[in-house]
């Protein structure tokens, strides 16, 4: 089977974890890792693994645009504004891992198929990737009036970018709970826990279903099915306990253990982002390859 060429923009934690995951893909061929610091651990590893390592940012990559058709942007929201414009002009598909959200929000388990034709898609936030599938799972069988999620992550897994722009997490996630999850109103809370050894990512999802629409059995089944879908690309995704039902409120407890590729296992929040990125890119690639064969 032929593969679609991809590049990673950003050689930090997310970029390097993506590098390891992409090495296992059947439909994606990682060719290039792009950074701005030739001494970064990410670029050093890229060279060791035989990938083209570019240390002059997106402009350096665009001198050899034939290296990739799909580009993951794992830089920052601010840098993405520039990168996105340049890459779009060069006709590249862009998977935005930053909170810039120029393109539509995509949750890998929920609405990927609707956006396979877009040039730029946004992966929301780690909390969004972990919780929106559950909001959707309830909403598809019992309309959700209000959904609230609480994401607790280990302090060690929250990088300086997340910390300096923590409002972007709450605001982007809240909006995506509505737009992608389907809740009439969404709210997101993030908590950093510094306990040692670091805790796994935990998410609690509260959904209030419309009056008279509670169907406990259907909701339980839908949640179970959705857990399996997410688990298919994030193996460490699981329900911590059975969902709780109390009147119109359904409470769902989720835990995300990372795959331990580049990032440690506790960093399930970062793992679910990179895993979702790879999943979406694979669907893109299958779509492109299918068109080529037709």
């Amino acid at each position: 089977m032929s593969k679609v060429k991809v590049a990673i923009l950003g050689s930090g934690n997310i970029g390097t974890d993506l590098m390891i995951k992409l090495g296992r893909s059947d439909v994606l061929e990682l060719t290039t890792v792009i950074g701005i610091d030739p001494d970064s651990d990410g670029l050093r590893r890229a060279r060791e693994l035989g990938y083209t390592a570019i240390d002059s940012g997106v402009d350096g990559f665009l001198e050899q645009p034939e290296l990739a058709d799909i580009v993951f942007d794992a830089t920052s929201a601010k840098a993405h504004l520039y990168n996105s414009k340049e890459l779009q002009e060069a006709g590249k598909k862009v998977i935005d891992m930053t909170p810039a959200a120029i393109g539509p929000y995509v949750c890998a388990a929920v609405n990927m198929d609707e956006h396979l034709d877009k040039d730029n898609i946004n992966l929301i936030t780690c909390g969004g990737q972990a919780t929106i599938p559950m909001v959707h799972a309830v909403n598809r069988v019992a309309p959700v009036e209000y959904a609230e999620i609480v994401a607790t992550i280990s302090s060690r897994s929250a990088g300086p970018g997340t910390r300096a722009n923590i409002d972007e997490f709450t605001e982007t996630t809240s909006r995506a709970i509505e737009k992608v999850g389907g809740a009439k109103k969404g709210k997101a809370i993030i908590i950093l826990n510094p306990a040692e050894p670091p805790i796994l990512m935990r998410d609690t999802i509260y959904t209030l279903v419309e009056e008279g629409k509670m169907d406990e059995e259907a909701i339980r089944k839908s949640i179970q099915d959705m857990t399996e879908v997410v688990k298919s690309y994030v193996p460490g995704y699981r329900l911590r306990t059975e969902p709780f039902f109390d009147g119109n409120l359904v409470t769902i407890f989720v835990e995300v253990e990372g795959a331990g590729d580049y990032l440690p296992k506790y960093a399930g929040n970062l793992d679910i982002m990179t895993a979702a990125g790879v999943k979406v890119a694979e669907e893109f690639a299958k779509n492109v390859l299918a068109k080529q064969t037709v």
């Binding site: 609480v150 607790t152 809370i189 908590i191 950093l192 826990n193 510094p194 306990a195 935990r202 609690t204 911590r240 306990t241 709780f244 409470t251 407890f253």
Partner: peptide, 17 residues
């Protein structure tokens, strides 16, 4: 014991269960 921090009220039900 679990060194839960402020804001983690969702852990209460979890631990109780």
């Amino acid at each position: 014991k679990r060194k839960v921090v402020g804001g983690q009220e969702d852990m209460i039900v979890d631990v109780a269960a």
